[in-house]
Structure formats: structure tokens, C-alpha cells
């Protein structure tokens, strides 16, 4: 099981700030594809990803219990 955190535009698209994905046997890229299909999220190729609060890339593999944050382009300051 993997917890997915959504922010900003993605949170509005999904109508929730977090999701639970039943399996963890996949890469970040595969997770993004799955979320696009299951939840209709868009522009995930334009989204940064953090696993357990550390930035990572699309080839990273998920582990059971991970928290994955999908981070649209940031605009602090």
C-alpha cells in the first residue's frame, strides 16, 4: 500500500488531498500512469515527485508504506 498526497491543482482535480493505492510494486512513472487512468489527473508529466519528503525521479521504485507526494510546479515567495 502506498499513500499519495495531492496538492494545488491536482488536489482540486481529484477532489481530495490524499489517496491510497493498494499495491506498491511499481515505479513513479507507473504510478503516475495509473493515477491518470483511475482518477483522471492531468499533466502528471509536468509534476515533480517526492517519496517520503525527498525529491526523486520517475524511474524510482516504490516500497510498501511509502508516502508519495505529487508536486505541481511550485510558486512560493
Amino acid at each position: 500500500m502506498v499513500k499519495v498526497l495531492l496538492f494545488a491543482r491536482l488536489q482540486e482535480e481529484a477532489g481530495t488531498d490524499s489517496l491510497t493505492v493498494p499495491q506498491s510494486d511499481m515505479s513513479v512513472a507507473e504510478l503516475k500512469q495509473w493515477l491518470e487512468k483511475e482518477y483522471g489527473l492531468t499533466s502528471l508529466s509536468n509534476t515533480m515527485t517526492a517519496i517520503n519528503e525527498n525529491y526523486t525521479d520517475d524511474s524510482a521504485l516504490l516500497s510498501e508504506g511509502d508516502t508519495v507526494a505529487l508536486i505541481p510546479p511550485v510558486s512560493g515567495g
Binding site: A69, V74, S75, G76
Partner: peptide, 9 residues
């Protein structure tokens, strides 16, 4: 901050 800190406006 504008590049890497997860804050959205």
C-alpha cells in the same frame, strides 16, 4: 524557494 520548496500560490 521559487524552485524547490513545495508551496503553491
Amino acid at each position: 524557494i521559487k524552485q524547490i520548496v513545495p508551496i503553491w500560490k
